[in-house]
Design a protein around this nucleic acid. Structure first.
Lengths: 137, 137
DNA sequence: ATCCTTGCAAATGATTTGCAAGAGT
DNA sequence: ACTCTTGCAAATCATTTGCAAGGAT
């Protein structure tokens, strides 16, 4: 839990049990939408309210502790903030896996932005398709 | 309007005036969320209902006539279906511009998917930052 | 001690549904 | 003719808010 406490304090947020539980759940799940996080947190903290999950996820996104991952056709998922990377999103089961963004892509992306006089801050690459499991079925 | 009528018929959808108006509005706007489309369509078709816009956008996404563009922090926008490309999204004014996805990126993206035994169908690259206009302010 | 956060319940906002009348093929 | 679509109003679902009590620094 010390890990999550530090993440919060580094961003000048109070380290409440609720926030640390949300971070711990997201860390385990990888990616989760708001109700999934709420259900998981309730297992260890049954009195938490959905409104608290909403409020905290919003605050932690605003403060750069977690990141929103918007997905076509589904509710946004959230993940712990990390370097830009690629999301492999299964359109069958909704599972999301991370893949590293190699230097070539990073460079290409920034040159595309430069060519349009656009000042890039971050990027999000989503690939939609079928995951290993769902390909068979 | 013949253009939009064809787009619909090619996907076995009835060419109603409401659907063609939505397509025409999206074509002009480039990208629009549901209420923006609703407000624009009302200018030429004042009796259209919001529910109709919802229902049609959903049907046309399901049938591949238009595409959902999910955006962090904002409601999804929609655009006419076209080849995979890059979205430059201004976090200040919300404006979305398209940029071509060059062959390098396309190849890199597909090799990332292959390395993870993932069967890619489509991809979505969003770059967040400041557009030409908002950079100054 | 102070300010921020929590949980609750109520309020708002967004999206979906059921249905009778009308439009498209 | 037949089937799908429309517009309306109501229903549902998602998200936000106000506030008194409790927690973090």
């Amino acid at each position: 839990m010390k890990k999550y406490e530090n993440m919060l304090k580094e961003h000048s947020l109070k380290a409440t049990y609720q926030r640390m539980s949300i971070l711990s759940v997201l860390d385990k799940m990888g990616h989760g939408c708001i109700d999934e996080v709420y259900e998981k947190v309730k297992e260890t903290h049954p009195t938490i309210s959905l409104a608290t999950v909403y409020k905290n996820i919003i605050t932690m996104v605003e403060n750069g502790v977690i990141t929103e991952v918007p997905i076509a056709g589904l509710k946004s998922k959230y993940e712990l903030k990390k370097d830009d990377h690629i999301h492999l999103i299964c359109t069958e089961c909704g599972d999301v896996k991370d893949a590293d963004m190699d230097d070539k892509i990073t460079q290409d992306v920034s040159s595309v932005a430069n060519n349009s006089s656009f000042e890039a801050k971050s990027s999000n690459v989503n690939i939609y398709g079928l995951c290993k499991n769902c390909k068979g079925a």
